[in-house]
Design a protein around this nucleic acid. Structure first.
Lengths: 207, 207
DNA sequence: AGCAGATGCAAGTGGGTACTTGCATATAAC
DNA sequence: GTTATATGCAAGTACCCACTTGCATCTGCT
């Protein structure tokens, strides 16, 4: 199997997994979806479980780079909103896969772990960004940074993962939710749009 | 089948569902777990799907009354913390069931709906409580109530549902997280422990 | 062209599953 | 005790599934 075909199989597997879950993704289905013979899957991957684990590992859960936070904060609300918007979009696009993998925790604990890979780096990036906000005087409650970061990520994750199941529990419209989460997160940290250390032209108050 | 036995079957079904998911919960397993004959399940419930749906519907996802918010706020931080603590505990205790049901969204959409039943009432109760806080002058940003409420619920839900999968993404220790979420939520609403309308003995500042 | 390796085809193995059927036994009500 | 109903037992039906096997064909390289 050439690499393009191998990738083709892995992509087919993830698509089916998102729709049908682990047990519902049969090797016959994968073979048909990928346009290969069923026996080829076993020759190449050894077992259905190994195939699906490799497929999940190769599937990018967290889009990197798309909406990284800047090294130097310039407009915190806009920057955090852009970050939250990108995060939510990425997670939303792969929500069915995530739900299926999380549900496998008891019987195939490697699967949810594929979903959380990369989360630590993003948490660290947000932490770092908030610390810079603190250093620049944008926020007053720096002790709450870890907690506010966790709450922001939870809001984004929960919104991306479950809004289609329970739409009324989330701020409407969906496209405006990231901005709301970003704003409230900054508010909870005692945000002030004027960097205390660097007097600037007066800006309209946030509230 | 007497009602106690019927309940016994439903409880066995939910236990197995939490562990093995929909497909992995076989009728043979349910029969064994409940101590009845497999054919009895079909006589009483008609099909495996109907049995499991009834089991999920009868399973209380949101414990009512355990930690209801008071009609008249007295100590908002303590009250919201108690609420968050109770909510998180209830959801945490049934997290595996919720995960399994959410993962069935594509193929058995009735199942996640069993999980969200009752959520609206809780959201309304929190909304009402926050509005009272606003009326009493405890919070200054009443326009953000719906958003803050949603963020608080997301934090609790996400913590309860996924902490065992990805412990490092949540505030430590777990027992202290509800208080943190409650505090940050109130902070984001511009909370002041002294009710502006009712001067009281000065209290220590929150931050 | 020849050769080695990869892939396809078709059939099969050895399990598993939701559900049904016919008869026997148990239980509850009168 | 009798009768009606519920449940258990055992076997069966008609599928489903991951995986294997033997042979044929295809592909890429020399």
């Amino acid at each position: 199997m050439t690499t393009p075909t191998r990738d083709h199989v892995l992509a087919a597997a993830v698509r089916l997994y998102a729709e049908h879950g682990f047990r519902g993704t049969t090797t016959r289905r994968i073979a048909e979806e990928a346009g290969v013979n069923e026996v080829t899957l076993f020759r190449q991957f050894g077992s259905k479980t190994a195939l699906l684990l490799e497929a999940l590992r190769s599937h990018e859960m967290f889009s990197r780079g798309a909406n990284a936070l800047p090294d130097a904060p310039v407009d915190p609300l806009a920057e955090l909103t852009a970050f939250a918007t990108g995060m939510r979009k990425a997670l939303h696009g792969t929500r069915a896969t995530i739900r299926k993998a999380m549900a496998e925790f008891e019987e195939n604990p490697e699967m949810p772990r594929c979903m959380t890979h990369g989360a630590a780096a993003i948490h660290a990036a947000v932490q770092s960004y908030f610390e810079k906000l603190g250093a620049l005087g944008y926020i007053s409650d720096t002790k709450s940074i870890p907690a506010a970061k966790a709450m922001l990520m939870s809001a984004i994750f929960h919104d991306a993962l479950h809004r289609d199941i329970d739409p009324h529990s989330f701020p409407q419209p969906a496209a405006g939710a990231p901005a709301i989460y970003a704003r409230l997160c900054l508010q909870s940290l005692g945000f002030q749009p004027v960097a205390a250390r660097r007097p600037r032209t007066a800006k309209r108050r946030v509230s």
